[in-house]
Amino acid sequence: MSIQHFRVALIPFFAAFCLPVFAHPETLVKVKDAEDQLGARVGYIELDLNSGKILESFRPEERFPMMSTFKVLLCGAVLSRVDAGQEQLGRRIHYSQNDLVEYSPVTEKHLTDGMTVRELCSAAITMSDNTAANLLLTTIGGPKELTAFLHNMGDHVTRLDRWEPELNEAIPNDERDTTMPAAMATTLRKLLTGELLTLASRQQLIDWMEADKVAGPLLRSALPAGWFIADKSGAGERGSRGIIAALGPDGKPSRIVVIYTTGSQATMDERNRQIAEIGASLIKHW
């Protein structure tokens, strides 16, 4: 067993022997301040990774656009098919120029040779490549099948209805392509620590998230040296922004954090800054 596999296998073990965790309302004060600064709703939840206990939450059962955070769930569904012998990570998928959609920095470079399922998941999570996500959605049967996968996990809230990039439209009061912070946090925890996926697939999923290259201005910008984070960000229309993450000190994750916002007129930089400040408060009061 590799060191990384050992780390993920012992996530519940280490967490069980940690000192009790206590909620700190100071972080919620910052979440509410972010709402004021952005002029928009902000949803927040913080779960203990081992027990699933909610440590703090704000608007945990209000719907927010998922945006690209759905790509972690998508690759979880792909990995479940791999575990069941219905898919192979090494299978190569070929596609054409007509398949390319807006923001496809990886797939646009491989029109000639195609990409493997493993490479597509890596591109979808680490670079948020939209064509990679659409190609992977095709392998599982489309958005409705991802929703069905989530329902089978016990998540009857999260739903995907459309493809990239239309799913980022974020129309107010439109339930399409949305989740709730509580539902997303619980589902992410199941994917990373539950028995739904094999140990190898859980490790692969967290490795992809740990290698995320496009979430630097968010929670990662607030992390002290030595902290662990595996995350996936999302951005959408109407001032929408979000991030889902597993993080913790001492090089291992111990909490799940989900943050979503929508309806702001603020710039992307300002949305990023507010999420980073929430992260800084979380870490300060850990």
Results as ranks from 00 to 15, higher is better:
228 F>W: 08
37 Q>T: 14
148 A>T: 13
130 N>K: 15
92 R>N: 02
239 G>S: 13
144 K>G: 10
26 E>M: 15
229 I>L: 04
215 A>F: 04
52 G>K: 14
103 Y>A: 02
103 Y>C: 01
93 I>F: 02
218 L>V: 10
282 L>N: 02
76 G>L: 13
142 G>M: 02
245 A>V: 08
241 R>N: 02
177 D>Y: 12
212 D>R: 13
45 I>D: 00
239 G>K: 09
33 D>H: 09
226 G>E: 13
207 D>F: 08
267 T>D: 13
93 I>W: 02
106 V>H: 13
191 L>D: 15
102 E>Y: 10
265 Q>A: 10
187 T>L: 11
279 G>H: 04
230 A>H: 12
118 R>W: 13
254 S>T: 09
224 P>I: 00
67 M>C: 15
170 A>V: 10
108 E>T: 01
155 D>S: 05
34 A>R: 00
250 D>T: 04
223 L>N: 12
244 I>H: 12
159 R>E: 01
251 G>V: 09
76 G>D: 01
102 E>M: 12
232 K>C: 15
72 V>I: 02
34 A>L: 04
265 Q>V: 10
130 N>I: 15
211 A>C: 05
68 S>R: 00
281 S>A: 07
160 L>H: 11
52 G>Y: 03
192 L>M: 08
140 I>S: 07
54 I>Y: 11
271 R>M: 07
193 T>C: 09
149 F>C: 10
266 A>C: 11
223 L>F: 15
285 H>G: 03
141 G>H: 11
148 A>W: 13
282 L>T: 11
37 Q>L: 11
121 C>F: 07
234 G>H: 03
124 A>S: 10
37 Q>D: 13
113 D>A: 00
206 I>C: 13
114 G>D: 13
98 N>I: 06
221 S>W: 06
83 D>M: 02
175 E>P: 12
185 A>Q: 12
200 A>P: 13
109 K>F: 03
278 I>F: 01
121 C>Q: 03
246 A>F: 04
100 L>H: 12
227 W>I: 03
116 T>P: 13
162 R>G: 08
264 S>H: 11
107 T>Y: 14
211 A>N: 15
194 G>Y: 10
204 Q>R: 03
151 H>N: 06
243 I>L: 06
180 M>K: 04
48 D>A: 09
68 S>D: 00
105 P>G: 11
247 L>T: 13
245 A>I: 09
100 L>Y: 11
34 A>M: 13
175 E>H: 12
145 E>P: 08
277 E>R: 10
100 L>V: 10
65 P>W: 04
130 N>T: 15
85 G>W: 15
151 H>P: 06
86 Q>R: 08
204 Q>D: 02
242 G>I: 04
80 S>D: 02
117 V>L: 01
75 C>W: 02
240 S>E: 13
283 I>S: 07
278 I>W: 10
273 R>W: 07
176 R>S: 04
36 D>P: 03
191 L>M: 13
56 E>W: 07
189 R>W: 15
186 T>W: 08
125 I>V: 01
96 S>N: 00
250 D>R: 06
263 G>W: 14
110 H>D: 00
142 G>E: 02
216 G>E: 00
45 I>C: 00
200 A>V: 11
266 A>H: 04
34 A>H: 00
184 M>Q: 12
266 A>E: 11
237 E>L: 10
102 E>G: 04
74 L>M: 08
50 N>V: 08
90 G>A: 03
166 E>N: 08
125 I>R: 00
284 K>F: 10
80 S>Q: 05
67 M>T: 13
125 I>W: 00
32 K>Q: 03
189 R>I: 09
146 L>W: 14
257 V>T: 06
277 E>V: 11
105 P>S: 10
87 E>Q: 11
198 T>M: 13
187 T>G: 13
129 D>W: 00
97 Q>F: 14
202 R>P: 06
256 I>S: 03
149 F>G: 06
46 E>P: 06
